[in-house]
């Protein structure tokens, strides 16, 4: 018998630590956007890029199992985007992101958005070296998702509740949703936005500006 006491995700964590120190050295703010498919990650990104393009150098890494649709949507805004197709993989890992940042050629002090594979489960376990995980939940998914997928909402520093333009048409219990999110993560910050109408986006840009400054 040999004792080894090793974390199974240790390898990923080593790559993540390397990414993190590289980001820090370059003054890059990297955010890992996680959600279920269709909550509006790419819509929020294209809108944010249009509004922030003059303010910071921006770049995007897109993770999907197949297609380069999302990277194409980002590139249409004039910002560089790199698509990672994970095939059967259900999440991005730090090694893939390490390769992606090599080929993206990021400017110093840029803002890097990493759109993870749409999945509220697996990406929670894989650190990419980001400064913050941002969980996006749309009101059409139901208010109980933070309780049903607690690992993801626990790992996130910010929850963006998207598609609030649809609230009048739904029986989504907003107060209960916020309560559930705080139950699994008492320190989580929460912003309510609509990537469609633009409502609430100034608070999101303010959140980004505060982190870009530090």
């Amino acid at each position: 018998m040999v004792q080894i006491e090793q974390d199974i995700l240790g390898k990923n964590d080593q790559y993540a630590a390397a990414n993190r120190s590289w980001f820090r050295a370059k003054g890059i703010l990297a955010l890992n956007l996680v959600s279920s498919p269709g909550s509006g990650k790419t819509s929020l990104l294209t809108r944010s890029i249009q509004d922030l393009k003059g303010r910071y150098p921006l770049a995007v890494i897109e993770g999907d199992q197949q297609t380069s649709h999302d990277a194409d949507r980002i590139r249409a805004t004039g910002v560089s985007a790199l698509q990672i197709n994970t095939g059967k993989g259900c999440h991005l890992d730090a090694h893939m992101v390490g390769h992606a940042i090599e080929s993206l050629g990021l400017a110093e002090k840029s803002l890097l958005f990493i759109e993870n594979v749409g999945n509220l489960v697996c990406p929670a376990a894989f650190d990419l070296g980001e400064a913050h995980k941002v969980a996006i939940l749309s009101v059409t998914e139901g208010e109980d998702k933070p309780l049903k997928y607690p690992d993801m909402f626990h790992a996130a520093d910010l929850m963006i509740l998207n598609k609030i333009d649809l609230l009048p048409y739904l029986d989504f219990d907003l107060a209960l949703c916020l309560d559930y999110a705080r139950r699994v993560n008492p320190g989580i910050e929460i912003l309510q936005v609509s990537a469609r109408s633009g409502e609430g986006l100034d608070a999101w840009y303010g959140w980004l500006a505060a982190r870009m400054a530090s």
Partner: peptide, 29 residues
């Protein structure tokens, strides 16, 4: 579970100290 209330006082906000482990302890080789 992560969102369980405190069994003593019923409050939410229990800081996890153990339970997130995922590691190889030993091998037979």
């Amino acid at each position: 579970q992560r969102f369980d209330p405190c069994p003593v006082c019923g409050g939410y906000g229990v800081r996890i100290t153990h339970g997130e482990e995922l590691r190889i302890k030993e091998l037979e080789v």
